[in-house]
């Protein structure tokens, strides 16, 4: 099946089989390896990407489902010269990255949350990650970076 969608801002066109997941398409066809398969059934969140701004488990979504939509992956973040996105910077500075396996998924989940709710409370941050993180040892620290990220966006959080 031929599908058209926007991938990290670029219009792309690709022929996909009906059973191929979005994660497989991203990793195998486009060689975007940031999204990881931690479980393959939507429980760990390591494969999180944005589809039309919403965080999705790309291992559960069929690739055909993104036809006509916008897909954003960790590789789409940051500036043209490789500058880090403020969210990426915040994760680093606050020690919210350990092994880094699920970090791309974490950052994309955070990005989706902030799009919807630029000034989340700590409770909202924790709830938003409920299904998107599993064994990450540093996860309690992950609520920290989101507060400053609101500051990076030019306004002060409460």
């Amino acid at each position: 099946m031929l599908i058209n969608f926007k991938l990290n801002g670029d219009a792309v066109r690709v022929d996909v089989a009906g059973h191929v997941t979005l994660l497989e398409l991203l990793r195998e066809e486009f060689e975007l390896l940031g999204a990881k398969e931690g479980c393959g059934y939507g429980e760990c969140g390591s494969c999180t990407v944005l589809v039309d701004g919403q965080a999705v488990n790309s291992c559960l979504m069929l690739a055909a489902g993104v036809n006509g939509k916008e897909v954003e992956t960790i590789e789409g973040l940051g500036g043209p010269q490789g500058e880090l996105d403020p969210l990426q910077q915040a994760f680093l500075q606050h020690g919210a990255v350990q092994c880094g396996f699920c970090t791309p998924g974490m950052i994309m989940s955070a990005r989706a949350l902030l799009k919807e709710n630029p000034y989340p409370t700590e409770e909202e941050i924790r709830r938003a990650w409920r299904v998107t993180c599993a064994a990450v040892p540093a996860m309690p620290k992950l609520s920290r970076p989101l507060r400053p990220s609101a500051i990076f966006r030019g306004r002060k959080s409460k």
Binding site: G34, I74, E75, L92, V97, C99, G100, I107
Partner: peptide, 13 residues
């Protein structure tokens, strides 16, 4: 911050 952090936050690791 960890010295190999940039690779990790960009998905390049």
């Amino acid at each position: 911050p960890i010295v190999d952090g940039k690779e990790k936050v960009t998905g390049q690791a």
